[in-house]
Write a protein that binds this DNA or RNA. Structure first.
Lengths: 172, 172
DNA sequence: TCCATCTAGTTGAGATTTCTACTACACTGG
DNA sequence: CCAGTGTAGTAGAAATCTCAACTAGATGGA
């Protein structure tokens, strides 16, 4: 009767049965289940805390902040829309809308791309850079307080390594 | 001139300087930075992949799925709105809207709470349970493919432990 | 050259989430 | 009992995100 969080169902009706496609369902073992749930809860809480802090003290969402970060690292503080979308794992559409808002706030500008007539470069303005510089210390502090300083170096490294193994293989 | 992803700025202007509040900014060390970025990318990709898969094969979003999971585990398949909100780390408002949609689809019902006149119980319908049972195998498979089976048992445990340490301390 | 196809980006509508205010009930101290 | 305060949940508008077109320029082969 119980279906485990976001990962597992063990209703009697399904037990040991075959999936829709014929193979038996390989439910998660209890310890796997526990790890998975800890992951979900931790990620949700952490994301929510970082987003809230960033918004409160800089008026930026996490994704806006990330866009500014990428631009700050790019040559000329400029990057193609599609590069940004790919590196942030956002849809092109989402990026268009978000950059549009940043542009409306004067934090970013759009320039048509000389090399490729279809392309658009997002360029961070001095105001955008200034806001990023102002926002960063608080954000780093929040990342430390809620993650980095909570874990030992080994734990943080293990976390990073695990997620680094996950990312490239992701289906889709 | 470069501001690192979602966590770090090291523009010359800020270097070694004091934060707004006076204390010097403790930027992340390079390895910490790397772990943090791996975390961000991995989480984003994984979430997006799991959400897409779930939507494609069951027409549910991750948060709808989670609500159904919680209900499936609750006595009588019923739980208070506020319990659900707390355990999912959703705002009450968000939960109201999401449950409203699930209700409109006939997957959940609302019952006023006998014990507390202010309270509302969300109760999973048989249709809701059936949909969850149908959705779960695919979701578990996706969680395995993209996370659980990608890592060794030790890595998964380390990941879970790390996130378990993070969750309770989160600011806010 | 020219057409088919692919890539980059945008658009607008619809769906979801957030934010703020509001109602109703519960609890506490006087 | 009752005012004051806190808790549970909802409502609606504004903000954001998703999804399905759609435009325009690039690319490749006949």
């Amino acid at each position: 009767m119980s279906v485990s969080q976001s990962a597992e169902v063990r209703p009697d009706e399904v037990d040991a049965g075959a999936g829709p496609s014929g193979e038996p369902v390989r439910w998660l073992a209890p310890e796997q289940q526990e790890s998975w749930r800890a992951y979900l809860l931790g990620v949700t809480r952490l994301t929510e805390a970082l987003g809230r802090a960033l918004d409160e003290d800089a008026g930026l969402s996490l994704s806006e902040y990330e866009i500014l970060v990428r631009l700050s690292e790019a040559p000329e503080h400029a990057a193609r829309m599609s590069e940004l979308a790919a590196s942030l794992v956002h849809s092109r559409s989402r990026l268009t809308h978000t950059v549009g808002r940043l542009e409306a706030r004067g934090l970013v500008e759009r320039r048509t791309c000389a090399a490729d007539g279809r392309g658009v470069n997002a360029v961070m303005t001095p105001e955008g850079y200034a806001l990023l510089v102002a926002a960063a210390p608080g954000h780093v502090r929040a990342v430390r307080e809620n993650l980095v300083d909570v874990l030992t170096d080994e734990e943080l490294t293990a976390l990073g390594n695990a997620m680094a193994r996950v990312a490239p293989g992701v289906t889709g």
